[in-house]
């Protein structure tokens, strides 16, 4: 159900301010969501004044800089620093994006950083993605076929067949889309969300997969699929320029078409 207010244990307190070092040339204020599970206290919003002249160009560089020289307890996920692992997805200035591909220069003097919206927070900017991954697994994101592959070769596809799944298969599961979706905020217990549905679509239209019918059966549900109200936040925020909203629309179309 739609619960617009944050629960009592989630309301944000004002936090501490770490002032810029003397002699800083280009100071930006980073307001960062902090939550320490061992403190027993509510989350807080800390302010870090950072000299970005003395730091790499991306938001992730700023976070790493803060962790290295201001507050080593600042916690966030990161790995590849080039937008392919999807670890550093977070809400930056009100929009979900990857910290590693978001340039500090495209943002203002004050930058607000929160974990992915409406998720259980493990610590600071680390959201608990357990359910998100379980939903991904629930669409069976692997090839299902009864027919054995040819004895002397792989299951071949035409160039066009491959091109149909090129974009949907490029999903990095960063969760930017699902956690940008208000329908997912209010119904994440039953609505699969754009990321899992994009994965489902990727396998439904795969020319080698033979379980399209079962896959569509599994999605024909008022909540799993039809909580999508085409708000378009998913496609708007996808850092890989993929289109979950279109994938969902295509699944809905397939469900109608197979009735006739």
């Amino acid at each position: 159900m739609a619960e617009f207010r944050l629960p009592a244990n989630s309301r944000i307190r004002t936090g501490v301010t770490h002032e810029a070092p003397p002699g800083a040339r280009e100071v930006r204020k980073l307001r960062i969501y902090r939550f320490d599970p061992s403190s027993g206290q509510n989350p807080r919003l800390d302010t870090f004044e950072l000299d970005v002249a003395d730091c790499g160009p991306m938001v992730l560089d700023a976070l790493i800089r803060i962790k290295a020289s201001v507050d080593s307890s600042l916690t966030f996920r990161r790995s590849c620093r080039e937008g392919i692992c999807g670890s550093c997805a977070m809400n930056i200035d009100g929009v979900n994006r990857l910290a590693c591909t978001t340039s500090l220069h495209d943002l203002g003097r004050e930058i607000r950083i929160y974990p992915l919206p409406h998720m259980p927070v493990v610590k600071d900017l680390v959201a608990d993605l357990t359910q998100f991954y379980a939903q991904y697994a629930s669409v069976k994101p692997w090839l299902q076929a009864q027919t054995p592959p040819p004895p002397d070769s792989e299951r071949l596809q035409s160039k066009e067949e491959q091109e149909r799944i090129d974009r949907p298969a490029a999903c990095i599961l960063c969760a930017c889309c699902s956690t940008a979706c208000p329908s997912y905020w209010w119904n994440s217990d039953r609505y699969l969300g754009p990321a899992a549905l994009l994965a489902a679509y990727r396998w439904i239209i795969d020319s080698r997969d033979e379980a399209s019918g079962e896959r569509l059966d599994a999605l024909e549900d008022p909540f799993k699929l039809y909580r999508c109200h085409t708000i378009m936040n998913c496609t708007d925020v996808c850092p890989k320029d993929l289109n979950p909203a279109k994938a969902i629309a295509e699944i809905k179309k397939m469900l109608v078409q197979r009735q006739s």
Binding site: P7, N9, S10, P37, Y114, D128, P182
Partner: peptide
């Protein structure tokens, strides 16, 4: 362990 807080949504997302 105490229950995990929910990260802010409507209050931080760019409306």
């Amino acid at each position: 362990m105490a229950e995990r807080p929910t990260s802010p949504h409507l209050s931080v997302y760019r409306m």
